[in-house]
């Protein structure tokens, strides 16, 4: 027992707290200190200058977002466009899991799960390399289609801006289908098998059983994931779009995160990039809270 004035400290607890201090400092340094960087959005930051040597800019950079709305609206359109395509695809892992669960062979199910999960574990650079191998003008898809007479001349989907949104969404689905299905397999496995037996006795066919037992059984999982995805509408990340970025598809692939990256680290407009980043964070937090209260209302449970 250590006594400091009126306060008594147990030696053991003090030791424990001291052991935790380096970790707390670390978290502060890497998660909280960067937040002070938000100040950049309010000053005219020039690389090389100290923060206190820069002029105060007030809300200039936030106003600039709306002044340059044409650029911004195209970026938002790409972001939301691909996000919504992604939302439309959210049922796919569930559907995949439902149908795979209907098959009798355990070994086959394991095999399918194993192989469909692999794409989740490779980086977007590798997926870019794979797409390049398959879909470029000399790629195998073009060769097969031309040999079959479906295509007359090679078309390169990686450089086709009309297809970008769909192509990127398809790649995301390819990468994540098996992985996202795992949680549904578990949910389906957790459904009481007596329900199925009882339904069969009552004369329910396969699709009726799926519709009235399996689908309700996984619907709460589905809604949680859907709502979380809605809260991430603006956060598509930068890896995928940076890997696939090229001048031909630039107009269609520039999503918000990539835009921030390019504004900041390519054109070195740190202040404006930070302002756009803050704008994104604020909208995302509003989305998260709205989705959370929606979840409370609909399901009586909060997400976070």
């Amino acid at each position: 027992m250590i006594q400091v004035g009126r306060f008594k400290f147990k030696k053991e607890r003090v030791t424990l707290t001291l052991l935790a201090v380096p970790f707390i400092v670390f978290i502060f340094a890497f998660c909280y200190v960067p937040l002070f960087g938000w100040i950049l959005a309010f000053i005219n930051y020039k690389p090389g200058l100290k923060i206190w040597d820069c002029d105060f800019a007030g809300l200039y950079y936030f106003k600039l977002i709306f002044k340059e709305w044409r650029k911004m609206s195209s970026v938002l359109k790409n972001t939301l466009g691909m996000s919504f395509l992604g939302l439309i695809c959210t049922p796919l892992p569930a559907i995949f899991a439902i149908f795979l669960s209907e098959l009798p062979s355990v070994r086959f199910k394991k095999l399918v799960q194993t192989f469909t999960t692999i794409p989740n574990f490779v980086s977007w650079v590798i997926i870019y390399a794979l797409s390049y191998a398959l879909f470029s003008s000399e790629g195998v898809v073009n060769q097969v289609l031309m040999n079959a007479g479906v295509l007359e001349k090679a078309s390169n989907i990686i450089g086709n801006s009309n297809a970008t949104w769909y192509f990127q969404t398809a790649l995301s689905v390819w990468k994540s289908l098996g992985w996202n299905a795992i949680i549904y397999f578990a949910a389906i496995a957790g459904i009481d098998s007596e329900l199925y037996d009882a339904a069969s006795v009552d004369g329910a066919g396969r699709f009726q059983r799926i519709l009235h037992i399996t689908v309700p059984g996984i619907s709460s999982t589905f809604f949680v994931l859907l709502l979380l995805q809605v809260s991430n509408l603006l956060s598509l990340g930068v890896d995928q779009y940076l890997a696939f970025y090229n001048s031909m598809v630039a107009d269609k692939i520039l999503v918000l995160d990539l835009h921030v990256y390019r504004l900041g680290l390519v054109t070195q407009d740190y202040s404006y990039a930070t302002a756009v980043g803050i704008f994104k964070s604020l909208v995302s937090i509003i989305l998260l809270f709205s989705v959370n209260s929606l979840s409370k209302k609909l399901r009586g449970e909060s997400l976070v």
């Binding site: 935790a20 978290i27 998660c31 960067p34 960087g37 990039a273 980043g277 964070s281």
Partner: peptide, 30 residues
């Protein structure tokens, strides 16, 4: 998991970091 001082606050201090981040540019400069 042990009884350190301010355990709840410390844990919350960690959890909060899952829901926000500073964004690319401030992080880069940090």
């Amino acid at each position: 998991t042990k009884e350190l001082y301010g355990r709840k606050i410390i844990y919350r201090f960690v959890i909060i970091t899952m829901y926000f981040n500073s964004g690319l540019i401030p992080y880069y400069l940090t």
